[in-house]
Every structure is written in structure tokens, then in C-alpha cells.
Amino acid sequence: MIGLDRVSRTFPTRDGEVTALSDIDLRVDKHEFVAVIGRSGCGKSTLLRLMAGLLAPTSGTVTVDGAPVRRPRADVVLMHQLPALLPWRTALGNVMLPVEIRRLPRADHRVKAAELLDAVGLTGFHHRHPYELSGGMQQRVALCRALIQQPRVLLMDEPFSALDALTREELATQLQAMHMSAPATTVFVTHSIAEAVLLADRVVVLSTRPGRVRQVLDIALPRPRSFGHSAHVAEAAGYVAELHDLLLHD
């Protein structure tokens, strides 16, 4: 579904070129959930921007469904680290923004937007403005705004990193449920090893400067997974330890 072939990306800066990503080969299959972890500055956001068509690779090719990505596609949706909501729009209005911009039928999508907001636990908050919502609620609105576009590929850039630990767990669990009921091909960038192990089929570990694929780890745990007690606590802990070592001894 998504393919990166020998992809590199450099940025010109005042003190010469910075190589953000170097020689990345990566394939993400249809309906697969891939987590990407790595230290800050290792090129995770750059990787997503390349897949989203917001950035062109310096060398190599990025393809979606075999076609090179040259500009943002309607079926590939990027969810930014910040909620990036419009402060003058209500929660519902924010979810409707892509519908308006893409000139999709409004009435049908309004119903769908309301359903999505209900599904992420925002019943009763449809007509609130972002400043009346907590950080976690804002991020849920941003998730609904991504989902209303019915993405075939969902790219998420540390979507929960600004939230407190419990809210993160709650949202990650919700995301798992959504992925199980209606799987979109997902690339999920995170700092959190536990989140990666909870959500991913595969975890891609990037090394720092330049960002390269250090290792790809398959997470062979049955779903639904949980952060707390389950029959597979020991195996999950094993994956967490392995990823931890990979990140620490970079």
C-alpha cells in the first residue's frame, strides 16, 4: 500500500545540509498498523510528511498504491501533533472543515460528524469551541476531523504526546477499537514504547542523525490488547524491554 524505496531527505540550513532521513526502505501493507519510534529529531515527522505528499524526497521514491506521491491525496490523511483546530469553529464545525473544503455533500457528513464525535466520547460537546475543551478533547476532535475523510491511509504524528498519561491510554485504547472495527492503513509516530506495543502490528525503530531504519519488530500479540493485566503481560513486557534496549543503545 505504502512504499518507500531508498528515500532520503535533507534540509538546507545555515550551517550546511541536515540529513533528516537517509536510505529508508519501508513497506506498509493494507490495513496494517505500523508504529514508528525514535528519539526527537530523528526524522519521524519528516517521514510522515513525505508519505502525506507535503514534502518531496531528496532522493528515492514514495508510493501509495504503486503511484508516486507528488501532492497530498484525498485518501491519505495526516493528523498533526497539535490539534490544529480553528478557534472560531465549534467541535462539529471543525470536523466539517474537510467536508466543506472538498465540497462533499454536507447534510450526510453532518450526521456522520456527529456520530464520530459521539463515538470518541464527545456527546454534549458538539457545539463547544476548542477553548472550552480540554487538550484530550481537542485531540479527539482532530481525530474525528481526520476520520470523516474516510482515509485509506491514516498518518498520525505523536497525536497524544501533549496529553496526560491516563488520557493517552484512554485514547490509545479507543484508537485500537476503531482500528479493529474499521481498519485503515495506519502509520503512528510515538515516543511511547507502551503505546507502540499496544497498537502496532509492526514497530519501526529509527536511529538518530541521520534517521535510518534501525530495526523492525513484529508484535505478535492477539487483539484486543490492553495496558493493564491480560493473558499476555509477559510477552508484552518482553517487547517493551526489547524496544527499550534498541532505543537506549542507539
Binding site: L54, P72, L78, L86, L97, I101, R102
Partner: peptide, 27 residues
């Protein structure tokens, strides 16, 4: 206009006019 909103409108393939009216002007 904050960069994340600029990126949002770009990723939605919004026209220059849509970006202006729906994002830059109200901002």
C-alpha cells in the same frame, strides 16, 4: 497564520481562496 494551520489547508488541498476565507482571514 500558524504553520500547523497552513499545513492543514495544504493537506486538504484547499484552494488559495478557501485558505484565505476559511483560515487566514478569520485568524
Amino acid at each position: 497564520t500558524p504553520s500547523e494551520l497552513g499545513e492543514l489547508s495544504r493537506s486538504l488541498s484547499a484552494s488559495a481562496w478557501q485558505t484565505y476565507v476559511k483560515i487566514r482571514l478569520p485568524w
